[in-house]
Structure formats: structure tokens, C-alpha cells
Design a protein around this nucleic acid. Structure first.
Length: 981
RNA sequence: GGGCUCGUAGCUUAGGCUGGUUGGAGCGCUCGGCUGAUAACCGAGAGGUCCGGAGUUCAAAUCUCCGCGGGCCCA
């Protein structure tokens, strides 16, 4: 039984096609088999950066999913074992905020009143609210990943692995308690993430005051500047720049003279017209360690010295006085400076932003409301030098509009600074795409790494696994559920989340007292950074699995993950294993709207991906995303361009459709016995050579993650080489009715090229390639294109010289067409000859091999080659390059004109066949009426006309039963009628 | 405010590392041609301050610096 191909529609509905393929993959478990088939081969390890499914997936998510997919499918086809496991990120503040909104809760107090148990239950539920949409979109876009068995960061196994890793860090003394200055909303009683802070900046006017601090050793004052008078209550130090020049000046204030110290560069601005006289100049470092009289005696200072002048490089001379007031409770740099110089700490403000009883006159007053009182006091005591107003941008709570306070909170840290060298060394082992990130954004970040503030005073997250003794203050980090059970004096819940875990009391090994868990949960970035081991429940289970899958060969996410997941993975892995967790990382650009503006819900410019799936299909979307530009560049999303990417798919489809159409007619059987390529004609050898060259280029590009280059090479091959040149030039070889060696060569060649293209394109366009492959394959071949090996170039099939010759011929053809166009002679009109003149003998030889192509394409009877330019008249000249020119003979004789007429008639008949929608193989009768000259032409080309149009009868006359039309050919009238025999 | 990145025709882009004929191409537009796979294709035309400015150089889209605009990250 000879192989026969299924018939196809010329106009294909990609969306329906894709739905069928999805069902096929489901039925046949193609994904699972594509992975399993490679078991035992070299692994290619991928880690999925877990998304949070508490919102709908948007185009940016789709981009990362298809980029992951194209690489993983490619590696699979290259023979690697590439298991892929989905993951879900399920903890964290964004989840809590969504639930707060739904419940109408605003503060932590309200959540506690509502009940942490119920609150967390709702959080857990919310993170899978859009799971179905995520799963659907993932499947629909063709991203193959195992979503039946995902890792989930809230499961007890995952949490236990995270606990184990934190205990490792704790055992090494890298987990410590300290203060962190965070942007804090006093009304919501919550620290805000930087992202939340960023959306709440407003321009406001604040007081701007210049305050005099009296030095103890001297009658001089340090003149400092601040826009937040209330923070003066927490003043611990003053800072000056060690290298800049400071001056001691006598300044006139009303009737008296003061001696002030400030930066020389700030003199004019700060003194604002006051009369002054410089009496001393020195570098800032000369002030180091000088003590001053505190402004207020309220603060209860612990843990170190106070009221001294310090030097610090961050002091700027852009504004103020060059003397900076330092309050460690209210500023991050302030806090860091005091900590590094062993200065003390004071926190006179409570978590609602009100002064505590440490400050009796201001007790219970909100800090911002205290500014006026404080300024008044300073004025009364004569230490307010100047007061003004100051316009600047200041952050407010996006939720309630309260001004945010920078506020020191107790926090747990991982000492990343001490791992700096290891982080940098591990980064050395990672390949970054694009490369600039390695030493740029990411490298710089590592150079200046800060300790990781790990804890969050929140509810829904992995509970921080540290217990503290009520009696002796001992700390203990629990590293497993087993350990927890052993040491607990109460029951251990199955659910390790708050509030249950908060009830677990441990016995203190030091003093026998009771230990309670600290209240914090951990940063959810630590959760996802633990994915390489926690997804395996390592080290409690799957130790071999983990070892085989660490480090990952490949991860990819959008560039905003540089300091997010890319960092948290490296941080955790360096702390625990001192190894890089991934070896190649591809950072992707973002999807912007057509105006180049970020897509966001609030702007309402987010494209509905389901509409794209339903209108254009997944392959068209994928192709658009792959070809839009380098993967690391932002994409301005344009639906019009997606439609354009369908053009390429149409061309690919039509090439296949052409093949199928004639292969069915001719009952072509693939793989009957392959004709050696060197026995085939030059067009066949050429297209096979081009194909193999392109295979090499595609592989090289994907290996560099230049996905866009690979895709564009393929597109160029399909459109230019295959469709517009090979098939167009070879069409007639398929039309010959009888069996022939040459026809068999053409069929075999086109079949092989299409099959190879399916495999080459399969990682990019998994649907259409699968569909075409299913029809083309025979039973010997794998039952899915995705189970095939990726093609590799066969060097012996690459004929660089032939490719070279052909590209020269293409140029000559273009030149010839231009010559015709200039002369106003259409291509259908045969001409007698064309002369190719070339001073380069080597080039001329290359053209000589392909003269037939030139003759056919230019529709001339003869092609002549010569070294010298001919001096003949009647020729029109076009230069191709310095050495190569084309001369087209534009003289017409009677014979040529007759042949041109006949071609026109054939063309009209073919058009009429199409109008009648006749089968390609249908035979017809033709009748015509015309003048004598045309009739003579028809008669002399009778056989040619019949062969071209499959006519069995061609005669003069008219028949009302036939389909007839009158034509104007040149200036002659011709009537033609046809009918099926 | 700082770091990174991008800016080429109406739109999407190649080229930029390694400076050197007239800065390529696709879509769209105008005109002409071709067409029995193709809503495809071919030819001609209109359309460019290569974001702006300065510098280096015999020579800059390309290298350097300073701006402007978009994006991301951080403050």
C-alpha cells in the first residue's frame, strides 16, 4: 500500500489546528515521553522561577514561558534529559495585601483582631485563585512543564527544607539580630516594600532649619541642617566629610556674634546674607571625635557613646551645611554609621509614630505634629540659627496616605557581607546573557553587598525557625520537624504556619526554661531562593535527585529578577553550599505597550493574551516574541506585528501545501530509495546546501541564546530560499505528468527539506510543525516531531561555491528584470538573448554553471558570456557590480512577438481554469476567436499551449455552453472559452 | 539623585564589539510587472538631522564625554 498524504486546506485555521494538536499531545502524553525518552542521557537542568498565581498571567509572563520553552525543547531534541517541574511561589506581603483589600483590613491590628488563622487560610486559598488561568495559558502557549507535580513553597516539606538551610546558616553564626531602618507606615503599622514606597512619592513642603550644636571644648557651634525637626530628639551624632574643607567663622546674628563651624563650600547658601568673617580653615577630619552638648536630655541611649562628631564619606556639599545630624533610629545611613563606630542607639518613638514616655513633654504626640513645638524650643534657647521652608518629594503610604517614617525596627539578618568574596567568586562561574549584567548591575550589587534583612513582621510566610528562652534569653534554631517534635513540650501542628507554630513551646537546654518562637516570618525571596534544594525536600529526601540537579544549567526570567530571584538563589546557595546555583542565566527584557510604556493594571494597557490566542494562535505569538529583537531587549508589543508573523507561517504552510498537493496526485512515496544528493540537479543540491548552512547558523545562535537570530535565519530560509526561489524555480518539475528521475529528485528534495524544517522549527513553533510532521512522517519515524533529534549540519552537503554562484545569479536576474522594466518589456515577452560581461574569469565560471536559470528567469532564448563589454546596439545595460554587467537585447522579431502572444493566451487560460476552480489534473477543451496573426501564432505553438493548459482540444470558434471571456492582449481582441472535457 | 540599558524611514528593525564605497531589510504608501502553492512574489519611486550637542580622527550611526527621552534596578 503506497504512502498517501492527507489532503489539506489551502487556507489554514491556525487556532483550530493548535487546539487539535493540544488534544493530541494530551492523548499521546507526548511531553512526558519526550522527557522520558532521554532518561539516562546527559541532563540539562532547569529550575522554574516560581510565579505567584494570585493574579492573571500577562504578556510578560508569556514571554518568559516561551523563552524557557524554546530552549528546553531545543535541548531535549539535542538529546539531553530535560525534566521540567513547575513551581508556585505562595508566600509574602503581596499575597497578604490582596487579601487585606478583599477583607477591608488596613492595619496589622485589624488582621490580628480578624484572626490570623482565618487570615492565613484565605491567603493560602488566594494563591491558587488564578491557578487555572495560569495552567491554561501555560498549556495554550505550548510551554511544556510538569504542572501535575509542582513544588509549592507553602508545603510542610518545602518549609522544612528552608528551615534546614536557615539552621545551617545559623550554625555558621551568619544569622543575627539587629536593627533595620525601614519605610514604615505609622497608621498601618507596617513596613513597606521599596516597590510600595516608590508608588507613593509626593512633592511637599517641609520645614528647613539650621541648628547650632555647642561644642564642649570650645565656644563654637557646629551648624547642622535638617528638614525633619522631630528627629532631633533621637540625635546621637553629627557627621562631617573627612576630606572637605570646613571653616570656623564669626557670624553676626542681630546684635551678637556667634562662632559657627560649617563647610566652606556651603558658606554663602547657609549663612544667607549674614555678615561673617572666616577665622580658621581645616579639613573635616580635624573635627573627628569632638564632643558637643546634646540638644535634649530626653533620649535613653543604650549600647554606646553619643554626641560626638564623626566623619563619613556620604556627607554631601550639595545642600545644607556639610554638617549632618545623625539619628540612628530614623535613617538607614545614620544607623549604619552609628553601628560601625560603636555609637549608641535610642528609639523615642513607638510603632504608631508617637513619642514615648521617654519624652515627657511630647508623649503621645505624632512626630510630624511635634515639629512646631521643637522649633519653638530651639528658638527660645537661641540655638535656632535660621528657619525656612523646603520643597522636596517625600514618600506617603499608597494605602492610607500617611507620611512614611524611616524607622528602625528589630530585624533578623543574614551576614551576606561576610560572604562577599564567595559571592563574587561564584558569580565568576556563571555565564550571563547579556554579558554586561555579570560585572554591571549584578556585579556592582555584589561588590557593595549589604546584609540580608530576612525577617518580616507579618503573618503569611515561612515562620522564622528561631526560638528564644523566656528566662535566659538563649536562642535556638530548629532545623527539622523531627527536631521540633523532640524538643517541644507541647504538640506540634501539621501546618507549620502561624498561628499554630506560635503555640509550640520548647524546653531550653541551658536553663530548662520555656522557649517561644520569635514572631517574624521570613522574606519570601528566601523561599524561592531555596528552590534548588527545597523542591526536592532535601536533605530529608531525594538526596541523589538533588545532587543530579545541582547546579542548574539554565534559568531565565525578566531583568527585574537580577536583584530578586537571580540574587536570592546565589545568596542562599553560596551560604549553604558555597557554589553557584546556576551556570547560565538569560535575562529577558520587558513587554511594553505600543507607546513604549510599561504595561500595568493601573494604566489599563495590559494586552489580553486570551484574545491573542483566539485570534492569532500561540505559534504566531511565539514567533513574534522570538523575532521581535534580542531577548534582553524590551519589546513594544504590537498586535499588528503578530498578524505579520502569520505571514511567515503562511509561506511555510504554502510550501508544504504545494508539496502535499502534487505528492498526492503523483502518489509520491517518501524513503522509497533515496537518490544520492550528488546525483540530483543543481537546484536540489543548492537548497540542500543552503539548508545545511542554515542548520549550522541556527544551532550556533541558539547556543548563544540569540533566539532572534536563529528564528530570523529560519524565516529568511523559508521565505527567500525555499519558497521564492527553490519552489518557484522547480515548480515545473512537479507538474510533469509521467514518472521521471528528475521529478523523483525534486520530490525527495522537497520532502527532506520540509521534514528537516519541521524539526528545526519545532522548538519555536511546536504546533504547526507537529501538524505538518504528522502528515509527512511515515510509520518508521517517531510519532511526534518533538520526539525527533534536532538536525545537525552535514558538511559534505554544503557546497559553498554553488551557494555563491546562485547568489550571483539571483543578482543577475534582478538586474535583468530591471533592464526589462527600463525598456518597458514585460517578462512574458521572450527576448532573443542576454549578454553577461565580466572581467573576473572566476566569477564568469560560476555563472556559466547556472546559465539555464538565467535563461528561464529572464525569458531569453540565449545567454552569452564574455569578458569584454559588447559594443552592440539594441542592448540595454545594467551594472551589477564593478566587474559584472548585464546587457539585454531588446530587439523584437515576429517570432518573439508570436511567442509572447501565446504566453499571454496560456496565462489567460490558466486564470480561467482557476476561476472555474478546476482540478489541477482536469483536462479541458479550448475555443477561441481572434485575428489572423494571433491565429497563426496559436497554430504554430499548438502543442505548447495544449501541454501547458492540459487541453485535449484547441480550435477556432464559439460555443455558448462553454465558459468564455473576451480579452485585450496588447492592442488585439481575443475571445477564449474553455470547458472541462 | 545613582547604576545599567535602549533610542536608526510613518511602524518593526539590521549594522555598532573591530570607525572606511551611495546606512541595509520587512510592513505600509505610489507606479509598473509576474502568478496553476502563496492575501505570495519581482522592479521602480517617495520616505533618514542614524535622539541632540561637543570631542577624538584624514574619516563617526559605530569610539569618548555631556545632555534629552523610554525602560529596569536602587536611593
Amino acid at each position: 500500500m503506497p504512502q498517501s498524504f492527507r489532503k489539506e486546506e489551502q487556507r489554514v485555521d491556525f487556532v483550530r489546528l493548535e487546539e487539535h494538536i493540544l488534544a493530541l499531545w494530551d492523548r499521546e502524553h507526548t511531553f512526558e515521553r519526550s522527557v522520558e525518552q532521554r532518561r539516562g542521557r546527559e541532563p540539562f537542568v532547569f529550575v522554574e522561577g516560581p510565579p505567584t498565581a494570585n493574579g492573571l498571567p500577562h504578556p510578560g509572563h508569556i514571554l518568559t514561558r516561551v523563552m524557557k520553552d524554546v530552549i528546553l525543547r531545543y535541548k531535549t531534541m539535542r538529546g539531553f534529559y530535560v525534566p521540567r517541574r513547575a513551581g508556585w511561589d505562595t508566600h509574602g506581603l503581596p499575597v497578604e495585601i490582596e487579601v487585606e483589600k478583599e477583607l477591608g483590613l488596613n492595619t496589622k491590628g485589624e488582621i490580628e483582631q480578624f484572626g490570623v488563622e482565618e487570615f492565613n487560610r484565605r491567603c493560602r486559598e488566594s494563591v491558587f485563585r488564578y491557578e487555572k488561568e495560569w495552567v491554561n495559558a501555560t498549556k495554550r502557549v505550548g510551554f511544556w512543564i510538569d504542572m501535575n507535580n509542582p513544588y509549592i513553597t507553602f508545603t510542610s516539606d518545602y518549609i522544612e527544607s528552608v528551615w534546614w538551610s536557615l539552621k545551617e546558616i545559623w550554625k555558621r553564626g551568619l544569622l543575627y539580630r539587629g536593627h533595620k531602618v525601614v519605610p514604615f507606615c505609622p497608621r498601618c503599622e507596617t513596613a513597606l516594600s521599596t516597590h510600595e514606597v516608590a508608588q507613593g512619592y509626593q512633592d511637599v513642603e517641609d520645614p528647613s532649619i539650621y541648628v547650632k550644636f555647642r561644642l564642649k571644648s570650645d565656644s563654637a557651634f557646629m551648624l547642622a541642617w535638617t528638614t525633619t525637626p522631630w528627629t532631633l530628639i533621637g540625635n546621637i551624632a553629627l557627621a562631617v566629610h573627612p576630606g572637605h574643607t570646613y571653616v570656623k567663622v564669626r557670624v553676626r546674628e542681630d546684635e551678637q556674634w556667634d562662632i559657627l563651624i560649617l563647610a566652606e563650600a556651603r558658606l554663602d547658601d547657609a549663612l544667607n546674607g549674614h555678615e561673617y568673617e572666616v577665622i580658621d580653615r581645616f579639613r573635616g577630619e580635624a573635627l573627628e571625635g569632638m564632643e558637643y552638648v546634646p540638644l535634649f536630655e530626653y533620649a535613653n541611649i543604650t549600647g554606646g557613646a553619643a554626641h560626638k562628631v564623626l566623619t563619613a564619606d556620604f556627607v554631601s556639599l550639595d545642600e545644607g551645611t556639610g554638617v549632618v545630624h545623625i539619628a540612628p533610629a530614623f535613617g538607614e545611613v545614620d544607623y549604619e554609621l552609628c553601628r560601625s563606630r560603636n555609637m549608641g542607639f535610642t528609639q523615642p518613638v513607638d510603632s504608631k509614630g508617637r513619642f514615648t514616655e521617654e519624652v515627657p513633654p511630647l508623649r503621645g504626640i505624632f512626630v510630624k505634629d511635634a515639629d512646631k513645638r521643637i522649633i519653638e524650643w530651639l528658638r527660645e534657647r537661641g540655638i535656632l540659627f535660621r528657619e525656612a521652608r523646603y520643597l522636596h518629594s517625600y514618600p506617603f503610604c499608597w494605602r492610607c496616605g500617611s507620611p512614611l517614617l524611616y524607622y528602625a525596627r528589630e530585624s533578623w539578618f543574614i551576614a551576606m557581607k561576610s560572604l562577599r568574596e564567595s559571592l563574587i567568586a561564584n558569580n565568576e562561574k556563571i555565564n550571563w546573557y547579556p554579558g554586561n549584567l555579570k560585572y554591571g548591575r549584578f556585579g556592582n550589587f555584589l561588590e557593595n553587598i549589604e546584609d540580608w534583612a530576612l525577617s518580616r513582621e507579618r503573618f503569611w510566610g515561612t515562620p522564622l525557625n528561631v526560638w528564644v528562652c523566656n528566662s535566659c534569653g538563649a536562642e535556638y534554631c530548629v532545623g527539622s520537624v523531627h527536631e521540633l517534635r523532640e524538643r517541644a513540650v507541647s504538640d506540634v501542628p501539621d501546618d507549620l504556619h502561624r498561628p499554630y507554630i506560635d503555640q509550640v513551646v520548647l524546653r531550653c537546654e541551658n536553663c530548662g526554661g520555656e522557649m517561644k518562637r520569635v514572631r517574624e516570618v521570613i522574606d519570601c525571596w528566601y523561599d524561592s531562593g531555596s528552590a534548588p534544594f527545597a523542591q526536592w525536600h532535601y536533605p530529608f529526601e531525594n538526596t541523589d535527585e538533588f545532587r543530579r540537579n545541582f547546579p542548574a544549567d539554565f534559568i531565565t526570567e525578566a531583568v527585574d529578577q537580577t536583584r530578586g530571584w537571580f540574587y536570592s538563589l546565589l545568596a542562599v546557595s553560596t551560604a549553604i553550599f558555597n557554589e553557584p546555583p546556576y551556570l547560565n542565566v538569560l535575562s529577558l527584557g520587558h513587554i511594553l505597550d505600543e507607546q513604549g510604556v510599561k504595561m500595568s493594571k493601573s494604566r489599563g494597557n495590559v494586552v489580553d493574551i486570551n484574545r491573542i490566542f483566539n485570534n492569532d494562535g500561540a505559534d504566531a505569538l511565539r514567533w513574534y516574541l522570538f523575532t521581535a529583537g534580542p531577548p534582553h531587549d524590551d519589546i513594544r508589543f504590537s498586535e499588528r506585528d503578530i498578524t505579520r508573523s502569520k505571514k511567515f507561517m503562511n509561506t511555510f504552510w504554502n510550501s508544504y501545501f504545494f508539496f502535499i498537493t502534487y505528492a498526492i496526485i503523483d502518489r509520491f512515496i517518501p524513503h522509497k530509495e533515496a537518490i544520492p544528493v550528488d546525483k540530483r540537479n543543481y537546484m536540489d543540491r543548492w537548497v540542500i546546501s543552503r539548508l545545511n548552512t542554515v542548520i549550522g547558523e541556527v544551532i550556533e545562535a541558539i547556543e548563544r541564546f540569540d533566539v532572534h537570530v536563529a528564528a530570523r535565519r529560519l524565516e529568511e530560509f523559508v521565505v527567500n530560499d525555499l519558497s521564492n526561489w527553490y519552489i518557484r524555480r522547480s515548480r515545473r518539475r512537479f507538474w510533469i505528468p509521467e514518472e521521471s528521475f528528475d521529478k523523483e529528485c525534486a520530490y525527495q528534495t522537497l520532502y527532506e527539506v520540509l521534514m528537516t524544517l519541521c524539526k528545526l522549527l519545532a522548538p519555536f513553533l511546536p504546533f504547526i510543525t507537529e501538524h505538518i510532521y504528522q502528515n509527512l512522517r511515515d510509520t518508521e519515524q517517531p510519532d511526534s516531531v518533538h520526539l525527533c533529534d534536532y538536525p545537525t549540519p552535514v558538511e559534505s552537503l554544503i557546497d559553498a561555491e554553488l551557494e555563491d554562484s546562485m547568489s550571483m545569479v539571483v543578482k543577475l536576474v534582478e538586474a535583468g528584470r530591471r533592464a526589462r522594466s527600463d525598456a518597458g518589456i514585460k517578462i512574458r515577452q521572450p527576448l532573443s538573448d542576454v549578454v553577461i560581461a565580466c572581467s573576473d574569469a572566476d566569477k564568469l565560471t560560476k555563472v556559466r554553471n547556472l546559465m539555464d536559470v538565467l535563461r528561464d528567469e529572464l525569458n531569453v532564448r540565449a545567454v552569452r558570456l564574455c569578458v569584454e563589454h559588447p559594443a552592440a546596439t539594441g542592448y540595454i545595460r545594467v551594472d551589477v557590480d564593478d566587474t559584472l554587467s548585464l546587457f539585454l537585447n531588446t530587439q523584437l522579431d515576429k517570432g518573439l512577438i508570436a511567442e509572447g502572444l501565446v504566453r499571454d493566451i496560456v496565462r489567460r487560460v490558466q486564470g480561467m481554469r482557476k476561476e472555474l476552480d478546476l482540478d489541477y489534473t482536469a483536462e479541458i477543451r479550448i475555443m477561441y476567436e481572434c485575428d489572423a496573426e494571433v491565429e497563426e501564432a496559436i497554430e504554430s505553438f499548438r502543442d505548447y499551449i495544449c501541454a501547458e493548459t492540459l487541453a485535449v482540444e484547441l480550435k477556432r470558434g464559439k460555443d455558448g455552453h462553454m465558459y468564455g471571456r473576451s480579452w485585450k492582449i496588447g492592442d488585439r481582441d481575443v475571445y477564449i472559452a474553455i470547458s472541462e472535457r
